[in-house]
C-alpha cells in the first residue's frame, strides 16, 4: 500500500513538474503578453493541482490536506482575478493607449 502511495505521489508530482516546465516554455515561446498569461495560468494551475494531488496522501492530518487544498484554491482565485485585468492592460498597451 505504501509503495502504491509512493508511486502515485512520484507520478503526480512529476506530471505537475512537466506542466510547470510547459508553462515556462510558453512564457518564452508565445508571441504576445496575453498568450503568455494563458501559459502562466492554465499550465501552471494544472501543474500545481497535480503536485497538490500527489502530496495529499502524504499529509499527516486533515489540517495538512486542507492546507494543500487551500493553497491551490488561493492560487486559482488570485489568478482568476488578476489574469483578465492583466489581459485588459496588455490589450490597451498593444493599442497604444
Amino acid at each position: 500500500m505504501t509503495l502504491l502511495v509512493d508511486v502515485f505521489t512520484v507520478l503526480a508530482v512529476a506530471a505537475g513538474i512537466v506542466f510547470f516546465i510547459a508553462g515556462t516554455a510558453g512564457l518564452i515561446r508565445f508571441p504576445d503578453t496575453s498568450s503568455r498569461l494563458h501559459a502562466l495560468t492554465k499550465a501552471d494551475h494544472l501543474g500545481l493541482g497535480l503536485v497538490v494531488l500527489g502530496l495529499l496522501p502524504r499529509a499527516e492530518s486533515l489540517g495538512g490536506v486542507l492546507r494543500l487544498l487551500a493553497i491551490w484554491g488561493l492560487v486559482l482565485v488570485s489568478s482568476a482575478a488578476a489574469g483578465p485585468m492583466l489581459a485588459r492592460l496588455a490589450r490597451r498597451g498593444a493599442r497604444g493607449g
Binding site: 506542466f19 508553462g23 516554455a25 508565445f30 492554465k42 499550465a43
Partner: peptide, 13 residues
C-alpha cells in the same frame, strides 16, 4: 483545468 493545461502545454512544448 486538465483540458486547458494540456492544450497550453502542447502548444508550448
Amino acid at each position: 483545468a486538465l483540458t486547458a493545461g494540456v492544450q497550453v502545454a502542447l502548444l508550448a512544448l
